[in-house]
Design a protein around this nucleic acid. Sequence first.
DNA 1: CAGCAACTATAGCCTCAGCAATATTCCTGC
DNA 2: GCAGGAATATTGCTGAGGCTATAGTTGCTG
Lengths: 178, 178
Amino acid sequence: MKANAFDDPRITAVGLLFEVHAGLAARFAAQLEEHGLSPVEFEVLTRLTRSPDNQLRMTDLAAQTSLSTSGVTRVVDRMERDGFITRRACPSDRRSSYAVVTPAGLRRLDESLPGHLQLIEDWFTGQLDPAALGALLDGLRRVRDAVHPCATAGSGPAGAAGADCDTDEVGHSDDPDR
Amino acid sequence: MKANAFDDPRITAVGLLFEVHAGLAARFAAQLEEHGLSPVEFEVLTRLTRSPDNQLRMTDLAAQTSLSTSGVTRVVDRMERDGFITRRACPSDRRSSYAVVTPAGLRRLDESLPGHLQLIEDWFTGQLDPAALGALLDGLRRVRDAVHPCATAGSGPAGAAGADCDTDEVGHSDDPDR
DNA sequence: CAGCAACTATAGCCTCAGCAATATTCCTGC
DNA sequence: GCAGGAATATTGCTGAGGCTATAGTTGCTG
């Protein structure tokens, strides 16, 4: 029919993944925002708290997060200004400096942790139980093995992957044409 | 017993999630980069391609992606400059304009799609089979049901970060002490 | 029909984060 | 001991993207 790939199951599968990821990220961000933390700050707090004496050298912190060293410098600047962590000079290497979690930072992390874990479990149990995951995997496998749909347009097999996920797409806009 | 939460299983669980997510995002980004696409551009391409006539009004595109309307404007600017999509005036509403995928954009999406799907399946099968997922879920449930470690771990602000700073035996990074 | 509210896209301003350059400090080879 | 190279943190510059203001357009309502 059309020259587009409107019904390409591969693209539908990718779209599903985007949906899940974006929704999850938004939920996490919103939950952390309630506690006055950005996702990056939360990550930094967890990494530091998992380290001995709640401290880490800037370089190591950068290596253990998704941040570059300069990014770590900026984040630590902000969090130090907010009182969540402090810098401490390394006594044995005057180039290095430690980022140390303050009591306020520990408290803040402790406050935001339960909601975060709850979100994680809600996601696993409520939205993607193992059975659904298995089905999704099967669908993906079939999608990947399918021949290029340009030739087999409209072939139903891989419809399982995303058949039900978003039928709202077509009429999404309030008024398609006016 | 340390005063920090080094062995707090809740934080370990969160750290694991961060690890998985960061690794996955980095792989996707790298794979798309090979084809000259950023994750956002890829998302825009998939959304447009999933729509009738490979086009979408700017507002609708913003609603279906994780971008704001201004963000969509900028991304479409770049992708139009790169020749992947074009703007088209809406004939019935002079406020709106469509973003349309060009043949070059379709081709580019088609090139990057197989590798992307392969990555998705590799992740499911290779790194997180259903059994491992179930185990992870169980662990999370146990972690969540655990008593709040605040009382036990002594995350009391006084003793926690107030630990003196001359303990060189941290040794977490490559070189313990120099 | 005039006015007003809602909608659409865009531009200005801001923050965030990565890359490259820089200053300081450490280590190794001589 | 000392010179040169490596490591560490920071800063300037740039791009990306969100929020708000703005101009243009549409539709509704008195």
